[in-house]
Nucleic acid binder design. Sequence first.
RNA 1: UGGGGCAUAGCCAAGCGGUAAGGCAACAGACUUUGACUCUGUCAUCUCCCUAGUUCGAAUCUAGGUGCCCCAG
Length: 379
Amino acid sequence: MDKKKIIVGLSGGVDSAIAAYLLKKQGYEVTGAFMRNWDAIANNDISGNPTLDEPMCPQEQDYEDAKKVADQLEIPLLRVDFIKEYWDNVFMYFLDEYKKGRTPNPDIFCNKYIKFEAFLNWAKAQGFDQIATGHYAKRVDKDGMTYLYKSFDQNKDQTYFLSQLNQSQLSASIFPLGDIDKHEVRAIANELNLAVASKKDSTGVCFIGERHFKEFLFNYLPMKKGPIVDINTDKKIATHDGVFYYTIGQRKGLGIGGLKDYPDAKSWYVCKKDVKQNILYVANDENDEHLLADSALISDVNFNAIRPENGQQIYAKFRYRQKDLGVKIFLIDENSVRLEFDQPYKAITPGQAAVFYDDNVCLGGGIIQEVYYKNRKIN
RNA sequence: UGGGGCAUAGCCAAGCGGUAAGGCAACAGACUUUGACUCUGUCAUCUCCCUAGUUCGAAUCUAGGUGCCCCAG
């Protein structure tokens, strides 16, 4: 039997490097691919971009690192761009959501449309059997289905970002890091003497990078000042730069401090956005009732493998790196569900992903559409 | 132009003669492949509106300015 031909997305980081190494060790015929999906200059990513003035743009630096890794592992490295696809399928969506006053999660769409669609299709066309990535996630084949499980390293688990993948995407993918933790990844990289063994984990929007977020959005969304209103008194207490720059539960960046009428003032938190009237509502207590929700309507629902039962008790994650929270799931139709929370949860934000779990099984996920508290829609 | 009150960091605010609390904001770092939250750290030193004085020593007392507020006109 021929060796399976695998192409690994090499980002220039340590995770994908070790993913490639493990596959090679397992006997696959491994090729690396470096993807570039964001052109800062062409995409007008100017304000809030800390790396504009650097002699080598960060993607080229990452490419150099990926090249070093490929050379050390003795695998070929291909290069491919999906700049247009990224702009059309991820970034436009991202901006549209912001314009609606919601808080999108671009990386979930990046996986759905770029890494596991554009890239996957490209790889197949190049004659590869499967693609692999350095995601911390586990693929489990059982009963003729391909399931997505949380990674062994619970702290790094990235199934949240993979929740929109379907059967054909999952079955064409390999996640070599599913059974080891980050320390081990670093340790292997050190043993191999990899150039990127100690490279800092990358953060920020995938393929774009770290940005001063509000300034980054200034590039694409016009500033539009309006009132910040105390939701408990309905009084204007400050001015904002445009409701879409803020997200529910946000504390930093409001610039509200030391108000005469609030001698015991604590920190202020965003609890509601009125896009139409351009009003930002805030509450003066991190435990304010206006931050709570007890049920939500989830749209764009995808189940990775099987559909849960109607009314089943499961867990949901409403933000990456947030604890799994107990919910009951009610199936409404093919693409939407309603979640009833075991108890009120804080800062549930429309536009963000709700990802469903049954213990370690990632069932799938969707986009938070409407949020309710005590049967009243609060967004 | 009579009386009273107040002037402390970006904002709110302690201090009442002994060598500038605290909170919010901001900034930095940690955490993090969204965006938040969270945690840690920094943040008044010819300084407490200005000037002069009393005192060993004043943000704190005195006098005079300046500005703002309230009451009465």
